[in-house]
Each structure stands twice: as C-alpha cells, then as structure tokens.
Computed example of a mutant assay.
Amino acid sequence: MTKFFYEFSLTPSAYFELFTDFALELTQEAIEEIECSDFSEWILYNASLPNLKKATIVMRMEKDPSGIIEDFQSFAKQISSRMEEEVGFAYKIEKKKNQDWIDNYKKAITPLECGGFYIHPSWYENHPKLKNIILDPALAFGSGHHATTFMCIELLSQLDLKTKKVLDVGCGSGILSLVAKKNGAIVHMCDTDSLAIEESKKNFSLNNEIIDKIWEGSLKKVENQTYDVVVANILADIIKMLYYNLCCITHKGSVIILSGILEIYKDSVIEKFNDFDLCEVLHKDEWVALKMIKR
C-alpha cells in the first residue's frame, strides 16, 4: 500500500448520473457518491459556485488525477452540445495520507430494496422476507442503484417469468438476469464487453444460480429462436440501432423493456419501435424506461 493517495472530488452542474457512469468508465476505480456543501477551495469549469448541498462524485486513486481533468472537460462539452445547454462542474484534488478507504467505501454501499428483491453486497446479511441477490460493487457495472437499472428491476418483477425465455442485452453485472432467473425464467445473456461476461459469471456463481446461456457479442449471434421477454438497459442511440434485431428475435406478444434512455430521447425511441405497443413508461431522475409488447 502506498503512503499517499489522491482524492478527486467532482460536482457536476447537471446530469449527475451521466458523469458518474463516465467516471467509472474513465478511472476504472471504485467511486463514492456523497453530498457536499463546502466549495470554498474548488475549481470551476463552465459552472457557478454551488450555494447548496450538491451531489458529488469522489474518486480515490494512487496516481495524480490531474491528467484526466481534460477528459471531464471534453465530456462536459459533449453533453452541453447534445443537451443544448451549458453543463460544467466544480472539482478539487487532495493528496491524503493513506488509510483503509476501501473499508470506508464499503460502509458507503447500502443495500437496495426493489421489486421484491433485497440487493446487497456480501458483507450484509440476507433479508429474511425478500428475495436476496448478492452483488459486490464492481468497477463499471451496476448494482441496481442507478435509475435505469432500478426501473428495469421494477418492470421485470411485474411479469410472470416462470419458464419464460428472457434475453438480457448488455448484461453488465448480470443483475437483471439474476432478477429474471430468481423469478423462474430461462435466461440468456450477452454483452460486447468481455469484462461484463466475466462479472456476470462471477455474480451468478455468488448467488448459486446457473447461467442457461451467455455469449460475448451482439444480437447477431442469436440463431433461429425468439424470446418471450427482452430487456435492454443500454443507451437510446444503440437501442434504436438494434430495432431490426429486436424485431427478429421477438414474436407476437413478446415484451421488451428498454432503458438507459434520457427523457429527451423517449419519443424518438417510441417512434422507432412502431411494431410494438407502448404499455408503461417509468420516470426516475432524467431517465425513462419503456415496457412494450409486440403486435
């Protein structure tokens, strides 16, 4: 263990969840979400000084993070362009004496109750009355706390999945597949990221569940079969690109659950999926999730 570490705190002016996802992907480090109220020594980028408590991302690393500030600036510019509004952030970097901050991070990870499930890390006890899913937070994969994942769990849990064939597109940590599996489904999973495949396998093993089928790659690898339920928690642009493939792997009456969609892109996704009837729309933060049935 090194003698010192760096603590990089960043407070976005808007779109906190997007910045969180980007921080996970960029740093490949465990992060913590806190509320901060003292910004007296912070540096501003395209943002005014917050005057109230504000959601803050805290990243801890052994190397000086100064070099990634430009990455966050470029990301803020991209969001500003796409959302047609000025988006910036405040940040500070502190060099601190090392301590067991992994333990502190663990203390910050709290269990989640959603859709009749109790999703918790391995250092928590099982819930006596809810269905338990053990999921230790990984570097870049969801544990259910993200709004998009939370809504998918809610929508999946409303369905009768016993013996139904379910496909999880972009499985990540495998959390949605675990929800479907524990509700009696036959579950297939895929992701274009090899790390996601390994993470899903690890989490199924941790929960004493067997994976029915998993592969690295896209929907093009699905051959001569259709699914009763397909869940895709990815991004709106990718979801629209997968429209034809999703039509091919579903049948009349199939349910698709689409999430990872920012509110401003909701209508474009609904319009694209004109072979499906819209049944339900969930809203959480700036995100939406759609439940649709194929005609």
Rank of each mutant, 00 (worst) to 15 (best):
F4M: 09
F4I: 07
Y6D: 03
Y6C: 05
E7G: 10
F8S: 05
S9I: 14
S9T: 15
L10E: 06
S13H: 10
S13I: 10
A14W: 00
Y15N: 01
Y15P: 00
E17G: 04
L18G: 14
F19A: 00
D21G: 15
F22T: 01
L24W: 03
L24A: 04
E25D: 12
E25H: 14
L26G: 07
A30M: 06
I31M: 03
I34N: 04
S37V: 12
S37I: 12
F39E: 10
S40F: 09
E41S: 15
Y45L: 10
N46A: 13
S48V: 14
L52A: 11
L52V: 13
K53N: 11
K53W: 02
I57M: 01
K63I: 08
D64V: 14
S66F: 05
G67I: 09
I69E: 03
E70V: 13
Q73P: 00
F75Y: 14
A76K: 10
K77G: 07
Q78W: 11
R82A: 08
M83P: 01
E86C: 13
E86S: 15
V87L: 01
G88I: 02
A90S: 15
Y91R: 07
D103F: 15
D103P: 02
K106Q: 08
K106W: 02
I109G: 02
G115S: 10
I119Y: 01
H120F: 05
N126Y: 10
H127K: 08
K131W: 00
I134H: 03
I134Q: 02
L135A: 05
A140Y: 00
S143Y: 00
H145R: 06
T149Y: 05
F150D: 14
E154D: 05
E154A: 11
D160N: 15
L161N: 08
K162Y: 05
V166I: 13
V166D: 00
D168E: 11
G170F: 05
C171G: 09
G174W: 07
I175D: 03
I175T: 03
K182D: 00
G184W: 10
I186Y: 08
V187P: 00
A196K: 07
I197S: 04
S200C: 15
S200Y: 08
K202H: 12
K202G: 05
S205P: 00
N207E: 01
N208G: 01
I211T: 09
I214R: 12
S218A: 13
L219W: 12
V230T: 08
V230R: 01
I234E: 07
I234P: 11
L235S: 12
L235D: 11
I239S: 09
K240C: 12
K240S: 09
M241W: 04
L246V: 10
L246M: 15
C247R: 07
I249D: 04
T250F: 00
T250S: 09
H251N: 03
K252P: 09
K252W: 06
V255Y: 07
I256M: 12
L258T: 04
S259K: 08
I261N: 11
I261F: 10
E263L: 08
E263D: 09
D267W: 05
S268I: 04
I270R: 15
K272L: 05
N274D: 13
D277H: 13
L278Q: 05
C279T: 12
V281H: 12
H283A: 03
K284T: 11
W287P: 11
V288W: 01
V288E: 03
K291F: 03
I293A: 02
